[in-house]
Design a protein around this nucleic acid. Structure first.
Lengths: 247, 247
DNA sequence: GTTTCCACTTGATCTCGGTCAAGGTATCCG
DNA sequence: CGGATACCTTGACCGAGATCAAGTGGAAAC
């Protein structure tokens, strides 16, 4: 009886890294080895998980909640460079130092692996590296998609783009119905949205209000969003095709 | 006698992908296999190598010249999302479709591998995937660094950032002397610079003139740049540390 | 209850970079 | 040689978004 057969794969979903990075097709035997070096960590909203420049001795993935990657200049200007939703991977095998701040945007649970053993395991099991390569290529595409948003879109288009991304990621959790209204709670403050979009929070507020006034979205309170027509929103975002941003 | 011993590694430098992606420490035996699926392609300045959305049946790396990755909206707004200098890798193992336009910015020579055989080889030789993962992580860091430039820097800082990146990459070719003036030729038109920086070509022109007037750079003709003080330039760019952008 | 705090909204004004337009310079080609 | 073209520069004006400032609303704390 192989390790694979012994191991209960029925709950692969509760640990995204096992599921997405390691157990891609549930065809591996090294899961037990991973179990040995795995641990969970919880963070409160607002907490900084790691500072840019600090040594980072783990890799992992988001189980629940939202984390953000942020870069900051000396004078305080900050730019969010990534949004980590559940199942997204954090960390760089082969790197010692964190290249940006990682913060918990909401309450957050992460599934972590000590970096050294994980790297060792990666050396022994080729498809982990290949799986990570695929995920990293996805992130790279997303980052480059975002460069278009930052460099060339108007404030209104930026807001629409962000809403569209969150809607697509979030909606898939609830229901993958592309027709019919999409409903979700914004997991970001106006300030966090501004940092992501390269705007000020005032401009974010104004443009959200404008989209509401024009019926592109409707708001209940400040965070609860309903999108009556996803196609309309994507038009507003200036997206022809999809413009997926899985990060 | 192993293949490795038979193979002449003395010119590993003339083929960046062999050198950087495959033959990282010249410790591999599969070089001859790669030789079989390798070919070179030349492009003239301005030529489009591949269009966004087209099938891409090769991977490769830049041998000489400069290529750019570009995204375009329906209304014509364009954003450059990557600059490929010699030794940089192009292509996504495991992907069928090119996610953005790839263009030759200058005359260009690429070293290509047919994608399918390359992927097969990658499956058999783990360290190729690991090497590609490292390179992709570098690109991702660079893209995220660039998001800060696009989202939060002023026009002057953007120009200084771009000059600083080119200077650092180009200078290492000629001489890695960080003190003393750095001299290089701009490989980009004002318009290409604008597309990279999320500006208009007029603003680029104005800010280049301003940096020249202020003695941060000096120009001979329109393209030949001398940087008397690299530290000064990096201050102008708003970079504290380095902000390297290897893409 | 009311006080405090935080996230958000809205208004008034300013400014950086975009837009439109004209002119300059080098190279190629008849 | 003169004319065409591509690339670049400079000026005048304008507007999207930043900045500064005041006010709102809701939830937690007292």
């Amino acid at each position: 009886m192989t390790l694979k057969a012994q191991f209960d794969h029925s709950n692969c979903d509760d640990c995204p890294i096992r599921h997405r990075a390691v157990c891609a097709q549930c065809e591996t035997d090294e899961l037990e080895e991973l179990e040995d070096i795995k641990y969970y960590r919880s963070f409160e909203a607002g907490q900084t998980i790691i500072w840019s420049g600090d040594p980072m001795n783990f890799v992992g993935s988001v189980v629940s909640g939202i984390a953000s990657l942020t870069q900051t200049m000396e004078d305080g200007r900050t730019q969010m460079v990534g949004l980590l939703l559940p199942s997204d991977f954090v960390g760089r095998p082969g790197r010692e130092i964190a290249p940006y701040d990682v913060q918990a945007t909401t309450d957050l649970v992460m599934c972590c692996f000590r970096k050294k053993p994980f790297e060792d395991l990666m050396g022994k099991t080729p498809h982990i590296a290949q799986r990570l390569l695929q995920m990293t290529l996805d992130e790279l595409d997303a980052a480059r998609e975002w460069m278009l948003v930052l460099g060339r879109k108007t404030a209104r288009e930026k807001i629409a783009s962000l809403l569209s991304i969150i809607a697509r990621r979030d909606a898939s959790v609830s229901k993958t119905v592309l027709s019919g209204p999409i409903v979700f709670d914004l997991p970001l403050t106006r300030e966090a949205m501004a940092d992501y979009l390269g705007l000020t929070l005032e401009t974010v507020s104004r443009q959200v209000s404008a989209l509401k006034k024009d019926g592109v979205i409707s708001l209940e309170g400040k965070r609860h969003v309903t999108i009556p027509d996803m196609g309309r929103l994507m038009e507003e975002a200036g997206d022809d095709s999809d413009g997926g941003f899985p990060v």
